[in-house]
Design a protein around this nucleic acid. Sequence first.
DNA 1: TACCGATATGTTTATACATGCATATCGAGG
DNA 2: CCTCGATATGCATGTATAAACATATCGGTA
Lengths: 112, 112
Amino acid sequence: MQLEVKSKTWLEADGKFIMGEHGIALLDAIDELGSIQHAARRVGWSYRRAWGYLKTMQRHAGVPILVISHGGTAGGGTRLTPQARKLLREYKRLQKTLRATIRQKSRLLFSY
Amino acid sequence: MQLEVKSKTWLEADGKFIMGEHGIALLDAIDELGSIQHAARRVGWSYRRAWGYLKTMQRHAGVPILVISHGGTAGGGTRLTPQARKLLREYKRLQKTLRATIRQKSRLLFSY
DNA sequence: TACCGATATGTTTATACATGCATATCGAGG
DNA sequence: CCTCGATATGCATGTATAAACATATCGGTA
């Protein structure tokens, strides 16, 4: 029997949800693709869902996350602010540390 | 603005949920009170809810968790197996470590 | 100034999951 | 063998969340 410890982490500001691991993946995709539309497809979300997620993220986070533009040949697009990029970087680093800690410390739980 | 990292941890066996932090509290209460009924009240759950939770826990966990008895002046009762006690102990130790890690490592995220 | 592709948003439908209610069962002790 | 308090479980209902649908808006560019 495979016993394992699972975990989730997310970010809150003043007790309100900002983003979780799916949000991280979405922002990563936006950073790469320059568009909410394309990023949503990439992570398997509908545009509607991604948009709603980002909306509450923006509302709850104090710092600006997205730089949105309209028009042009591409029809518009979305980029990340430098603060958002830094947040992503640090958050992923923390996740990595936590995963390692769990892997390392959960050995005792498996001795059955 | 108070930015903070939140986390949840839980136990799975072969991909199936066994217990989370509420389950830990429930088992703790059972260990102390010797009864599902009383433990449920203690943690603010209905007996129905606690029973359903424990049922799937037992079904998914390979090791025996509960020792249940019927009858007697007390009407019956429930105790934990030694393995369950050990599991609780180790799991809580892991949670403590993780909380400390998050507190320590999330400082960088707050520099805005 | 018309077009196009992306952003913006309300409304509805589906669904999973929690909660509450009612009731059956168990068995040591008196 | 009856009682009592705890365990056991079906079922109906409520609720919160997600998926689907429809439609409006924006503004650089050709």
